[in-house]
Design a protein around this nucleic acid. Structure first.
Lengths: 131, 131
DNA sequence: ATAAGTCCTAAAGTGCACTCGAAGTCAAGA
DNA sequence: TCTTGACTTCGAGTGCACTTTAGGACTTAT
């Protein structure tokens, strides 16, 4: 398959596919006359990478995962730790988002009229600084 | 107060303060001999802006809010709508994050060993495409 | 007198993940 | 034959929110 066909099959643009190759998150395929020739397996590989990207895992982490993805038993530990790290990150993000959400709601209902002590936003801002 | 004093009082760097001024999210202060002279009120204004930024509200939105923040009754509606929009955004983000989280956990436990149909990641990737 | 410290502007740099454009190659179809 | 379309590389551009740098001014302390 050529890069265009892979792009259509996966929804990943040709330029993104080349970028992923350069970044080392997918293998460099064989070439015929300079043109990339892909095996069908690339489709699932790309779909997986697209999912990981959509999950917020950075290219850098995927690159280190990719080195191990077909490796030894130890390889599994590497990418499991990347996924675990993302889960942890997501958890703290969600906790923060919940807090932020509540403060924004209070800000909307706030009738502080310029009075510092009554202002939900300023209270939240001061709370931020106290870390 | 000079910009450096304001920076120390708020935790916002001098360059960020100048950037905020250029972006129109804080007012241009008076100058003495070219040097910015701030009134104490700027401190709460900056703290509020810093809170909104930390809440994920982009500079652009803050700029449109800032135009109305001291405006008429209608002004209130403008920035309430910005805050409301961010809350909505946060809600859908959190829903997606929850879904992503679950899929990542399944991926960690997945023992698909290359079998397409058993692979949690590929199932999730295919589910993404079906939008 | 000079070094340190703060201020000024304008422009360029940073990080991420791509996207876009220019300039060129190659094969198939009208 | 010539156009079309897909491919190639490499470098530059994009968006966001700043930060950093360069070059210059001014005040205060030694």
């Amino acid at each position: 398959m050529t890069i265009g066909q892979v792009a259509r099959a996966t929804g990943v643009s040709p330029s993104a596919i080349r970028y992923y190759e350069a970044a080392g998150i997918i293998p460099s395929p064989a070439r015929r006359g300079g043109v990339r020739q892909y095996e069908p397996e690339i489709i699932d590989e790309l779909k997986a990478m697209r999912f990981f990207r959509a999950s917020g895992i950075p290219i850098r982490s995927l690159a280190s995962m990719a080195k191990h993805i077909r490796g030894s038993r130890a390889g599994r530990e590497v990418w499991v730790s990347v996924l675990q790290a993302r889960i942890t990150e997501l958890d703290s993000w969600m906790r923060e988002a919940e807090t932020t959400r509540r403060t924004l709601e209070r800000a909307i209902e706030c009738r502080c009229e310029g009075k510092r002590e009554d202002c939900a936003v300023l209270q939240a801002a001061d709370a931020m600084t106290e870390d």
